[in-house]
Design a protein around this nucleic acid. Structure first.
Lengths: 191, 191, 191, 191
DNA sequence: GATGAATGAGTTTTCATTCAT
DNA sequence: GATGAATGAAAACTCATTCAT
């Protein structure tokens, strides 16, 4: 696990995050992973497959976090939305490198890898959509613009990596709470 | 405008938008512009300078649109925020290529170009910050989270290019209105 | 030799003849031509195109020699067959490098280049077929195996490069005469 | 025969026939043979040795077929020549892969393997030379060009793999007869 | 007896850029 | 004002081969 495959994936993720997919070089990835280029090619058939493996792993990782958060949140839509926003904020803060690659390098995937990527992305979006729909149906939310609200919430959460300073004064927990509050405002949560 | 320069910039912008800065090739840019590579290098010193010129032109272009919108909006903060959101939504929809490059290729700038870029970016952010601050001071807005609200609004507006379909059913005007409404919700606009 | 295109083609032909297409390296071709690899790629899009250009040039060159020989040979089929065998023998002897590449590297062509190559090869074969058919029709030839005779003749002529020693005692003219004699024997030429 | 060795040789032969020696990769050979690369290297010291073993085995195989054919042919040179042509035609038709490698990859041998290869090739040529010489001595053959005739015959037989279609209408037996007839024509066989 | 893992030199090709004219 | 020709470095990837186990 660790020595070959995982070390290479980790190095590739960092390199893709810093340079972008096109700007990253396989040579630098191998060097960063502490293996020869040939060893890298022994474990992965090519640069594109590295990206595919990373996006698969990280999106799945994030989706799992969301599933868990919703499952632990109880029945009220407001609590589920709080949980979802919290999980997303936390993921962006705790995994900035993973988040950066997932959110900006999807377009660099080979065409045959796109479908799986977009399915996983849609799963994430659908979870928000479902919670908001259920909140509306239950009378917990009152917004007339559920789609726009969802887009605001997701865009805001995904944008965190662009400005958040892990060494700064804002804690993750507080940030999650604040973002959840605004999310509930957007969906017009009652009481 | 000028025959050589502008055609090259336009081609470069499209190429950067489609491939990313690192993934774009000077050869392809020249070909797309219909000029020889030598001609391109006659007008611009290099690839980085193309990016610099594009980001300068487009961010300035966007900032001017915002300035004009605010200036035309009258004195109430709510109207100014509506105008600002409207200008941003419109820019993202009407200039998807410009928007895409400005929003995703800033990190590829040479270090000596970064300062100007970030100053212009900050100008855009500050305009939202100022309007929200003035709205709070005037009692028009009531939010306890002005910074978070600003981030939600900007992130949502900037994200439009990721999903908006110009051939789809949603018109720009309607979209601008809807986004402005949510923006006002976020800042807790009164009555 | 000559700058640019021709020098590169000449070097590539020699290299392909000596090492085979797969065994030849673009680096060695460029070195042999006295140009940098980048210069080579300026003139030709890739290794395969070098092979394509060579086979086209050389097969056409040979076909032209055959056309001229037949045209100059007068009306009797026997004379035309003599001319055709003479032209082929001469080509194999005078252009051993061209002959070697044309006869052994056709299978290394890209699929889109194969058709043109095979058309030119067929043209060469058809010229022999036509002459033999006409000789039979005119009563000059009597063989019951015109197809086999044609294959014997062509195979023998094409094989010359495998054993002929240009520094040896056999002159081209004598060889051409001897091969023509056997060719006429094979088709059962009368008197 | 032996489990590892023979499967590897068979795979290598096919690969060499399809791609040429230089174009074939040890990886593909191992994969085709269904063994690991390490296993391949356990049985054979390297790629060159595979080629050496193949050429040795196949040329010897062919030579043995010729020896047997001549031995079974009786004393008349014409019958022996018929037998020799028949054996060669049959070998080219029945073993197209072996034939292809033997006839086109000899030049890729390591220098220390060349001698043995050329000795075996010469043995094949000498058998034809001897039969023709004996036919002339016995008055069975009358050609004035025994060397050229031999070259025609061998070249024609060796060329069969280039055009013969095993799924086509021509049977091996018929083809052998026809080629033998032309061979006898070339040597000027009497009666 | 056999392999999974790795290597370093090599491959073809593309890159941004320069220069003589 | 502009170009055709060229460059050296680097790109992604493959090669035949080796070695510790």
């Amino acid at each position: 696990m660790r020595p070959g495959r995982q070390g290479i994936i980790d190095a590739a993720r960092r390199e893709f995050a810093e340079q972008g997919y096109a700007g990253a070089s396989v040579r630098d990835i191998a060097h960063r992973a502490g293996v020869s280029m040939s060893a890298l090619y022994y474990w992965y058939p090519g640069k594109q497959d590295l990206l595919g493996a990373i996006l698969e792993e990280d999106l799945e990782h994030y989706n799992q976090a969301c599933r868990d958060a919703v499952a632990a949140a109880g029945d009220r839509a407001a609590d589920q939305l709080r949980a979802l926003v919290g999980a997303t904020v936390r993921y962006r803060v705790d995994h900035p490198v993973r988040s950066s690659v997932v959110l900006s390098e999807g377009r660099s995937l080979r065409s045959d890898q796109q479908a799986a990527y977009e399915r996983r992305l849609a799963e994430a979006g659908d979870r928000f959509r479902d919670v908001i729909r259920r909140g509306l149906a239950a009378g917990e939310f009152t917004t007339a613009q559920p789609d726009d609200a969802r887009r605001f919430i997701l865009a805001a959460c995904n944008d965190i990596g662009q400005w958040y300073d892990p060494a700064g004064a804002i804690g993750v927990g507080a940030l999650a709470d604040r973002y959840a509050t605004l999310a509930l405002t957007l969906v017009g949560a009652v009481a």
